[in-house]
């Protein structure tokens, strides 16, 4: 699954550790999600959406689409 986390984070000048702290996961998990190696659960995707004030579809994109 592709995502725009790295771009959204960069726009706000946040580090991976900052984002990790905001959604209560490890920095390694943020790194794995940004690289597309780990797909977040729906609750975590909602936490990203709330944090960036965007819909889940604006952040995550299905590979099959």
């Amino acid at each position: 699954m592709k995502n725009r986390l790295k771009v959204l984070r960069a726009e706000r000048d946040w580090t991976q550790a900052d984002l990790a702290g905001a959604v209560d996961v490890s920095r390694q998990t943020i790194n794995a999600i940004e690289k597309g190696k780990f797909d977040p659960s729906l609750p975590l995707a909602f936490r990203f959406a709330r944090l960036f004030e965007k819909s889940i579809e604006e952040i995550f994109e299905d590979d099959a689409v």
Binding site: D13, T15, A17, D18, G21, A22, D24, S26, R27
Partner: peptide, 16 residues
């Protein structure tokens, strides 16, 4: 962002 860094540090502290 300092609040987020603090939360991150609290999460790491809890894990440790």
């Amino acid at each position: 962002m300092s609040q987020k860094s603090l939360e991150s540090s609290q999460w790491t502290t809890r894990q440790n």
